[in-house]
Design a protein around this nucleic acid. Structure first.
Lengths: 148, 148
DNA sequence: CGTCCATTTTCGTTTTAACAAAACTTTACA
DNA sequence: TGTAAAGTTTTGTTAAAACGAAAATGGACG
């Protein structure tokens, strides 16, 4: 990926600015690929994230805050993400017995099933996106990303 | 930034998956900072990009495709970005004499003026985001980003 | 018990993005 | 010239995200 070529400039970009633009371009590329992979499942990337998070808790139900803390979405929208997933039958929700302010959210069997299918596709997408990286380079990249 | 801590997992993530999550987290952080910096100017990041692109062309007017090629937004939305900027008085638009399908878009004096103010803020945001990076590390990061 | 406050979730609204299709102009060419 | 095709921009519609405020419950304390 050549930044200057993509944004069609012949100027020399300052390194920090170039890094920011570079980052945005890569992120865009990644998002496109993920969206493409998820499209056949008619599920958005954030919905997919919710499902992954719920699966990670095994069969322990989570409440909204718990889910939200692990995501980058705003709380108010997490509610709606869960709404969508309920409509599709991938998660269940009920209000918590002991504390009626809370809700308990759990992934369903159907949710787990589709997640397994999606997993394969996502792995392929990841491999495709990262195909130019050696393991060593990936580690270096992760170390650099840690600095943010 | 510690990925596992942020997403509150105690699992060992596969390196490709971790990289993708890492990337998304960093991108989110960057966007938040930029949005915060731009907020006082009541201008979105994409609107800011349009202005920067127009300035880059000096006083040569651009058409929509030209702007759009340098951005990650879809064409149809670039129209609306320009609409917003016209309302604010930062750009002008008229239909091209020689080819009436095209439009000519130009940054105004007001546009250049606000851009100069924004520049300072954006530089600060960049420096803040990248404060943990040495120049050498920034170059390494850019080289790794090129591999995408 | 009643009242105030903190916690948790949801709702309403506005802005932004994605996608598809229409509108308008030019060009080519029969 | 008339008409189809291609190029350029705009519009319409729907889904997603950002932001702020409201609702509902639980806990503390007079």
């Amino acid at each position: 990926m050549n930044v200057e070529k993509i944004i069609k400039t012949d100027k020399v970009l300052a390194l920090p600015a170039r890094t920011m633009i570079h980052f945005a371009l890569v992120n865009n590329k990644i998002n496109e690929q993920f969206a493409l992979g998820l499209k056949p499942f008619e599920i958005s990337e954030q919905q997919f994230n919710v499902l992954r998070i719920l699966r990670g808790q095994k069969d322990r139900p989570m409440n909204l805050s718990g889910i939200n803390e692990r995501m980058i979405t705003k709380m108010s929208n997490t509610t709606r993400l869960v709404d969508k997933l309920i409509l599709k039958g991938y998660v269940q929700r009920w209000t918590c017995e002991s504390n009626r302010r809370k809700v308990e959210i759990l992934i369903t069997t159907e949710g787990k099933a589709i997640l397994m299918k999606i997993d394969k596709v996502i792995e392929d997408v990841e491999d495709k996106i990262l195909k130019n990286f050696s393991e060593k380079e990936l580690k270096e990249l992760n170390q650099l990303l840690d600095k943010f």
